[in-house]
Amino acid sequence: MAVAQQTVLILGGTSDIARATALVFARHDWVVRLAGRTLSELQREADDISARTSRKVTVHAFDVLNTSSFVEFADTLPELPDLVISVVGLLGEQSRSEVDTEHAKEIIRSNYEGPALILSLFAERFVARGHGAIIGISSVAGDRGRGSNYFYGSAKAGFSAFLSGLRNRLAISSNIHVMTVKPGFVRTKMTEDMKLPPLLTAAPAEVGEAVFKALGRRKDVIYVRSIWWLVMLIIRLMPERIFKRLKL
């Protein structure tokens, strides 16, 4: 019996994590749709994945900051996908965000407002249809605000809270699954110039594999490397009067 191929929509399709995740799904025979700002860059990823897997990959223009376009974006997709993954994110520059309101706003909107609104829109359509799954790539930076990236961190905290709230609601009223992924450090263009501890740093391919595996097991919240669970536990438990004096 032929089973209809499942479709995954990946928002923020040109990031290193998106690329690795798309490749894993394509290898497992999913139809992959990549959405992002620059079609030519998306096409480059789509061609790569197609050549590697002989699977169909399509590209779709999507701007996470243009929230008024979201309904039209969802309406014009070839179908309502079975799974939506938001890999959208902007680290930005902390020092600039402290003095430049527009930059700070862009960080907040890219990491919280846009991803939450678009996933909310798909959630409602999934509920109406009766099935679907949602994955948000959030960040360990959202677990506790730190001096080195608190606009990014607080926006990710908001996004994590949104996902947990959505999960709570849909778990009671439907069988739509919502998963939160906190990758920890990942060797990507976002972190290219940082010195990262090898034990805590994943390759993008690891994130892709972890996402696919966790989806199969219907996990709720995952850290890509399990050691991050311990690291963040310690960071969360630290008393504020000590935490505030640490350079983190």
Binding site: R44, D47, D48, A51, R52, K189
Partner: peptide, 16 residues
Amino acid sequence: THLNRLRSFDAEKGVV
């Protein structure tokens, strides 16, 4: 090393 994408694959000729 970041420019590491496949562009196309011609299965008939075996040319990538």
